[in-house]
Amino acid sequence: KNSFPEDATLWGKRIVIDCANGAGYIVGPTILQELGAEVVVIGDEPNGFNINEGCGAMHPEHLAKVVLDKRADIGIALDGDADRLVMVDEKGEVIDGDKLMGVLAVHLNQEGKLKGGGMVATVMSNQGLDEYLAENGLKLLRSAVGDKHVVEMMMEHGMNFGGEQSGHIIFADYAKTGDGLTSALQALAYLVKSGKKASEAFNPYESYPQQLVNLRVEEKRPFEEIEGLDALKERVEAQGMRHLFRYSGTENKIRLLLEGRDEAALESMMEECVGFFKGALV
């Protein structure tokens, strides 16, 4: 609660919070109410077995429905251990995680609170985030996937803000790991200050189209041993696309991500990539 500006209030805001039947089911609604919001609470009946079950940050579609039904200004979804944040605007649309982080980074910088001249995200974040930050005089550093890698890079470069598009957002001045409630309060403080509706406040740029395919593989061969992979990457880059090929850490799958301006070209190139990896690994 101390992370929320002393001169701000949530009075007049109707907020739906989905606590995922988890750790934040008491403290989350309590803080919002103490800050003056009209609060609608869901996912606040933990029984030891129903954590994250059809609710919370993993299932924001339920939150979206309640936001629309209650005509709320914004919706907040935590996950079971309350270290992730997913938000829904007044139209019932899930707010893009990259856009949320971008807006918060620029806001922190305008408030004179951003350290290191930028933020850390992961290799999964959209190129649109890079460009939005650059337009505002900020840099984006990319780490490997996983909030621990984000934190390590933040420390290495003297930065105090970073996160993953999936909702792990780190405000190092308040917590050294992702904290859904702290992140929500910072986002709400910005929303109040902006005077805009959530759908406008958290939609500052157009994201690049992306194609993501998860392909089951027989073996996880080291990439340097896969003949023709460098040539494939060159063909992708020649079309002005960004690529990310990585193995899942928990399953026998390879994750293929392509990003670029032309959706039709992306689809065509993804078909080529899928065919290539099927031939090499399946």
Rank of each mutant, 00 (worst) to 15 (best):
Q186E: 07
N21R: 03
E156P: 12
L232Y: 03
R216C: 09
G48W: 06
Y247I: 14
N21A: 12
D173T: 11
G36K: 10
G75Y: 05
K91E: 07
F4P: 15
G102P: 10
V192G: 03
E267W: 00
G43C: 10
E267H: 09
R242V: 01
A8S: 13
V16Y: 12
D262C: 03
I26N: 01
N2Y: 00
Y208M: 06
Y205D: 02
I254L: 13
Q127I: 09
M87D: 13
T9I: 00
A82Y: 03
D230K: 13
P209N: 11
T122R: 11
V86T: 10
Y208V: 01
G275M: 13
M153D: 04
G158M: 05
K253P: 06
T250L: 07
V94E: 15
F49Y: 12
L138E: 12
D44L: 02
L266I: 00
V282E: 14
L63E: 05
T30F: 09
Y132N: 11
G28Y: 06
K196Q: 15
K278A: 01
F245G: 13
G158W: 04
L188G: 09
S3F: 00
G75S: 07
E259F: 02
G279M: 09
G117Q: 11
A8W: 00
A265L: 13
G48I: 11
E135K: 14
H243G: 04
G275E: 03
C19D: 14
D98M: 09
G163T: 10
A82I: 09
V192F: 00
F49L: 15
P204V: 09
G75K: 02
G163R: 04
C273W: 01
A37Q: 04
L32T: 10
C19A: 07
K148S: 08
N21C: 13
